[in-house]
């Protein structure tokens, strides 16, 4: 699945504030960085230059995978405010 086109394939109403916040200090000691491959929307990417995960909440599918694969508790994970976020097509 080519996720470069995710915004053509999925409809969102994007909230100005992220609903998930990453604690980068905690990530510094993470051995697997599972969020970077397990997230089905590829929201997490390891940034070699900055030495941290970059997180883009806009394309999040709100599945919860990152919350469960992160065993260091680095994520302050919430659903987006009511009516925001992903909206799957009705037909």
């Amino acid at each position: 699945m080519n996720l470069d086109d995710i915004f053509d394939l999925v409809s969102y109403r994007i909230h100005p504030e992220p609903h998930i916040v990453v604690d980068h200090d905690t990530c510094a000691s993470c051995s697997h960085r599972a969020c970077t491959f397990a997230c089905p929307a590829r929201c997490y990417e390891w940034n070699e230059v900055r030495g941290r995960v970059d997180f883009a909440y806009e394309s999040c599918l709100e599945c919860g995978t990152c919350l469960l694969v992160c065993d260091l508790g680095a994520l302050d994970w919430n659903y987006p405010a009511g009516g925001y976020g992903v909206r799957f097509r009705a037909t």
Binding site: M1, L3, H32, F37, A38, P40, R42, T65, L68, V69
Partner: peptide, 20 residues
Amino acid sequence: HLDSLKTRGFAPYDLLERFV
């Protein structure tokens, strides 16, 4: 399965692309 996905280190969309 999430635990298996995590230990095997695969991305769901890559596996889906292969399946498709």
